[in-house]
Amino acid sequence: MTLIEMRDVGVTYNGSEAVQALDGVDLAVREGEFLCVLGPSGCGKTTLLNLVAGFIMPTTGSIRFDGRPIREPGPDRAVVFQDAALFPWLSVAGNVDVAMRMAGRPKHERVQTIHRLIEMVGLEGFENAHPHELSGGMRQRVAIARALALQPRVLLMDEPFGALDAQTRERLQDELLEIWERTKKTVLFVTHNVAEAAYLGDRIVVLSSRPGTVIAQINAGLPRPRERLSDGIRDLELELMRTLPGYKEQPTLTTERT
């Protein structure tokens, strides 16, 4: 079933000079799917995510969520922001709680949910810690817990692991996959990292830059759990790289595979 459907979507930002961020984007996201949006920086990936979140409206075309046009943000489409965007004055538990409070959830439900989610993202014992006491990876875990607390139909993730070191990033990727498999949420995951897209996505949508248009949609077709260094992942990475604008064939890569 299609959860999100974009038809001929274009976004133009009107500043001192008009910038066309997206142009003619057609995209369908299926329910339960892990979809990665891959593209170089400045290609409109974040714009695409903000459209689905309802933070901005398309200049042209239409977006439907569960069959209805998107008019405003809502808890059915929770965002995990690039820099976590936690409230620094609240504890870990407080950050998860306040999202539910603002969504109007009753107290007993909030109390149950907080502990379940903090455990799910592996932050037991840090309930009372404040964001400035946490590492970047831990902050993103809180952001994921907060997003899940809203019981969204889709998780919108805007390069959530982009600022983390390689080891932390890989660990969080694995934990995200576990959470995804447990909760069956649809995930729309924006990244500029080819390896990340190949490792995570059921499907990868590749965007070109300025204006952002869909230049490829690739089915990963790889079984899970995936091996990071497997041939299947490497083939997929290479396939993705070939579609990216400005890619030049590198002989070392091809010889490495034989």
Partner: peptide, 18 residues
């Protein structure tokens, strides 16, 4: 910050709660 306000918006917060 814009992102903090967006957190409230995605939760569907009323103006009073924001």
């Amino acid at each position: 910050s814009e992102d903090h306000l967006r957190v409230a918006r995605m939760a569907g917060a009323r103006a009073r709660d924001t």
